[in-house]
Design a protein around this nucleic acid. Structure first.
Length: 107
DNA sequence: AGTATGACAGTCA
DNA sequence: CTGACTGCCATAC
């Protein structure tokens, strides 16, 4: 079974997000087998800041809102990274979110 | 063991 | 689509 904590699983999935794509907490949580623990995903990503290899900026809530933007080093760093990958962001919200959305389960 | 917290999701208006 | 309320899970103290 899983010796690794819930967090490590979130890291694996988050790092599995392809370039120019974004995912949601619910999708990740569901991929882990706990669709109700979307909040845990956010918590895990909060601790993910220890590992810079985790593209947490590609993870947004179901509304495509960059909720964790305030958790990043720079206030505009998260948006900057997304735009750099081809993901248009306006007012902390991902444009064409449904098009950029990537589901680990559908992958 | 119980309480408090959290980068959410789903439902209702 | 947005705003407000509730529910759920896991971690930390």
């Amino acid at each position: 079974m899983s010796q690794e904590s819930f967090f490590e699983r979130v890291y694996e999935v988050t790092k599995s997000i392809p370039y120019g794509r974004v995912s949601t907490y619910g999708a990740i949580a569901r991929f882990l087998g706990t669709p109700r623990s979307a909040r845990m995903v956010g918590w895990a990503l909060n601790a993910s800041h220890v590992d810079e290899s985790i593209p947490a900026h590609r993870v947004v809530n179901r509304k495509g809102l960059l909720t964790g933007k305030h958790h990043f080093k720079g206030t505009n760093l998260m948006q900057q990274l997304l735009e750099s990958e081809g993901v248009e962001v306006e007012n902390n919200v991902v444009l064409d979110f449904k098009t950029k959305f990537w589901d680990p389960n559908s992958s």
